[in-house]
Design a protein around this nucleic acid. Sequence first.
DNA 1: AACTCCTACGTCAACGTTGACGTAACCACC
DNA 2: GGTGGTTACGTCAACGTTGACGTAGGAGTT
Lengths: 343, 343
Amino acid sequence: MDRAADRREPTMRDVAALAKVSTKTVSRVINGLPGAGAEVVDRVREAARSLGYRPNLTASSLRRSDRRSATIGVLFEDLSNPFDAALLRAVEDRARHAGVLVLAGSSEDDHTLQRELLVSLSTRRVDGVVVMAVGGHQDALQQERDRGTPMVLVDRPPTFGGTDCVTTTNRDSSRDAVLHLAALGHRDIAFLGDRRTLWTSQERYTGYLEGLAQAGLTLRDALVRTDLHGADLAEAATGALFDLDRPPTALFTAQNLVTVGAMRLLRARDLHRRVALIGFDDFPLADMLDPGITVVRQDVPGIGRKAAELIFARIDGDTSPPVHAVVPASLVRRGSGEIAPVS
Amino acid sequence: MDRAADRREPTMRDVAALAKVSTKTVSRVINGLPGAGAEVVDRVREAARSLGYRPNLTASSLRRSDRRSATIGVLFEDLSNPFDAALLRAVEDRARHAGVLVLAGSSEDDHTLQRELLVSLSTRRVDGVVVMAVGGHQDALQQERDRGTPMVLVDRPPTFGGTDCVTTTNRDSSRDAVLHLAALGHRDIAFLGDRRTLWTSQERYTGYLEGLAQAGLTLRDALVRTDLHGADLAEAATGALFDLDRPPTALFTAQNLVTVGAMRLLRARDLHRRVALIGFDDFPLADMLDPGITVVRQDVPGIGRKAAELIFARIDGDTSPPVHAVVPASLVRRGSGEIAPVS
DNA sequence: AACTCCTACGTCAACGTTGACGTAACCACC
DNA sequence: GGTGGTTACGTCAACGTTGACGTAGGAGTT
């Protein structure tokens, strides 16, 4: 029943034969180029339709002078993470308007995997790549960039030159979050962060320090916990904070899953109405919790749009100096960040 | 500084010239085929490395007999939806092990867009597609399938024959959810559903009816609200339910966003501790709410894995009869579904 | 009438790669 | 020492398409 599967795909030659013209004329008609009479155009169109002809973009891009594959690569950390997914969607929307499709992959924050995926993409001759760089060294990225692949980094900047990137106001927004807590009277504000190899973690930590300084508070090392990769580690670390002699009265959690872990612990110890919490990165249903979770919200669609615009400009030959675009994040007050310290 | 951009990509010819062999021999070395001496292999490898040579997969697949592009298409409704994102990730993981990359797109539940994306994919000669079908007619899908493109549908089955699909136990799990509520003594159980054109909505509604029947309860039409596309509509519809003379004591919300909308309303009217709620589809933080939300959880990674396995089997020439795989969902009890009716 | 110019086609080769096939050199064996 | 087989290469054409260029015929100009 499935004879369609082994039927050869029709080619321009088949269309040309049926319409009694040359393949070159078919090419002209398919691509809407001038040099074909109205009657011939109709004949070719009809022949293509009746054969179910679909142009072969891979053959076309092999031969064409611009060599475009009309495909870009998107390499994020984990496509199932809501942040990454929203970002992918934003890039995809912008790409669609350019007639470009997106090859998507998850690097799982693994250098080897990132390198392999970059090679896979380059082997398919994508026109450019949008990358959320794996933490630590960026040798593979730089190498790929040096080969001439247009590249835009998102969320984290490059450690090498000549490459565009789009990030958010990590430092400023973190500082503002801390100041927001300090203004309520908090003096013992803890910092819980993701892996220190990540640039975003470092920036947010720096913002935290700036906030403390600006509020005239002194840093207590015991209140700083980093390298919390995943909600479970964050939950345990939060627990340890409340075993201190002088526990924090407010938490600044510098990443999505860290916020979730901290929330779990606060609930488990029934502290969620007494300890203030501000998280970096919004998440679904943050408003449905009790109290609602105050967060620093990144403009994810804005970041994705900007990244897509940059990559398409570069693909189109823009050679202006590299840009580091910073998309502002904003504090969303929902309650948890507005809890005053218990006297 | 960016001279790399306009430097031509090295080809097999360049490598061959440098290694002083024929292009065919380079091809053999690159593809690890026999017929090249150890010394020549080394020379070619070194030449390729020093030139930064990357094989051109598009040229290769054009010429090779199998014609594989080592790329599949994934066409979901909205890649930023957590369900779709998790599914994409599962497919991607499985694809990676086959050395296959994923072209991802969002159909936005729009027939035109779905058709355009299918054409884009077929133009790039993907080896197969995994599709979450847009509701209503499936003309474009059937047409694409008839052209011979290997295809697997997920979440919703095809309305045409000869095509594999992977769905979950929509009907059975919905029935079980209703029975679970009925066992607690609920007699007025409302149904809130997504668009009726969606097969999943219909199945879940059928399960709801089966559950009522099996529990010996009579259907009250006033307690059935459908075509709730989005949380806002769901919230309004839920509100209307509680304006009834005899409001429901339990809700079965048959989709993600519908659940969220219902939750909003319950909270707004402070009913969330008195009205039972079971939702179809899990969502992040459902366990963090108070009460935790009892849900029917689909095995999303399982569905994705199965879909990927099916598509790869078909691509590899499996011609066994089409499969409708059903991946079991399970009831996750968190509290909201365990609230007894107020006497 | 001779010329230029334009339009509507066609011919040919090439993009980077690999399948089919050829061949030279060497080894083994009767 | 001829036959057969194997190994290690090379040559050539083709995959589906398009850029470069050619050409025939008609219209317009001098």
